[in-house]
């Protein structure tokens, strides 16, 4: 290896200097990396998931106590002032009827915003009672019943303060994740799964409310059923897409079953005459599709 010069001595040292080999294993306690990985991994994931769920439930309980007026004030400045369109006016009229049927309190006014975006097949409820409906979804509607079911679903979210709940839960999850040295996607994955499971619960309740509203307005739940069946037919469905754990909404079969259960509970038929769309919205189907991209965005 290298030249070994004769070791220099320290002849006048008053003591002996030795170099006994130190036994191994003192500074490294029993190494079982794989066992540690599985045991500690399971415990860590379990503890983290439990904390996340508890914190999420707490946030969900606290949110309804935040006054709705605060939500309205916070949201007010984020909505652009667009010129009123006949579509938007019609939607707001219908929303008012649906809100009345759902017995929405008077201090929770609903404002529908119509977005002429064909790429998004969606509608969303936001803070303060503001609901956005995208043209991509509106084009799919074939009857007023379906549209009413859709609006009822979103209004139910406002009524249950779901948006505020989701907001607080998101903050709680972010705080918890910040405390974790998350070098692996495991913990962000658990965070997502937990928030999505809360979200799915909320969606089921909103679906039930939508069924009830349709039954109250039209005497049957055909509109709600038609809505989900139509959306199910349009969604891309691969094997991996049907992993419910990662989705924020329940599976369509489950949503349809929720509506059916409501029909049975209210003793209303599942089919009936469907009221045609209001005049202003009937021509949307024929309008040119302004979506350029090939895959449509769906949440």
């Amino acid at each position: 290896m290298f030249e070994r010069p004769p070791p220099a001595r320290l002849p006048d040292a008053p003591m002996r200097i030795e170099n006994p080999p130190v036994p191994e294993g003192i500074n490294v306690s029993g190494q079982h990396p794989l066992r540690d990985f599985f045991v500690q991994g399971t415990l860590a994931v379990g503890v983290f998931a439990v904390c996340l769920l508890l914190l999420g439930a707490l946030a969900g309980l606290l949110a309804p106590h935040v006054p709705f007026a605060w939500e309205q004030r916070a949201a007010a400045r984020f909505w652009p002032q667009v010129p009123a369109s006949p579509e938007e006016a019609t939607l707001n009229e219908l929303a008012a009827r649906v809100a009345h049927a759902m017995k929405l309190p008077a201090d929770m006014p609903i404002v529908i915003h119509y977005w002429p975006d064909d790429c998004t097949i969606n509608a969303a409820a936001s803070l303060g009672g503001h609901i956005v409906v995208y043209r991509g979804l509106l084009r799919q509607m074939e009857s007023e019943d379906e549209l009413a079911a859709l609006l009822a679903h979103e209004i139910a979210h406002v009524q249950h303060r779901d948006v505020a709940r989701g907001f607080l839960r998101g903050i709680a999850a972010a705080l918890l994740l910040a405390g974790v040295d998350s070098v692996s996607p495991v913990f962000s994955g658990i965070g997502t799964a937990a928030t999505q499971s809360f979200s799915r619960e909320q969606e089921s309740l909103a679906d039930a409310d939508a069924a009830r509203a349709t039954a109250a307005l039209y005497g049957h739940t055909g509109g709600a059923l038609a809505l989900f069946s139509r959306l199910q037919a349009h969604l891309p469905h691969g094997l991996l897409d049907s992993l419910e754990l990662t989705r924020s909404h329940p599976d369509f079969p489950r949503r349809i079953e929720t509506v059916r259960a409501q029909s049975r509970q209210l003793a209303r038929p599942e089919t009936g005459t469907l009221t045609p769309l209001p005049a202003a919205l009937r021509t949307l189907r024929e309008a040119e599709n302004n979506c350029r991209s090939d895959d449509l965005e769906w949440e």
């Binding site: 008053p14 003591m15 002996r16 200097i17 030795e18 170099n19 006994p20 130190v22 003192i26 500074n27 503890v47 983290f48 904390c51 705080l175 918890l176 405390g179 974790v180």
Partner: peptide, 24 residues
Amino acid sequence: ATITKHLGLVQGSSVRAKHMGRDL
């Protein structure tokens, strides 16, 4: 006291982490 023999370097080390509660 006098040193009669030097036996070299001895070391001890330990690596620990804090748990989530302490973190927060």
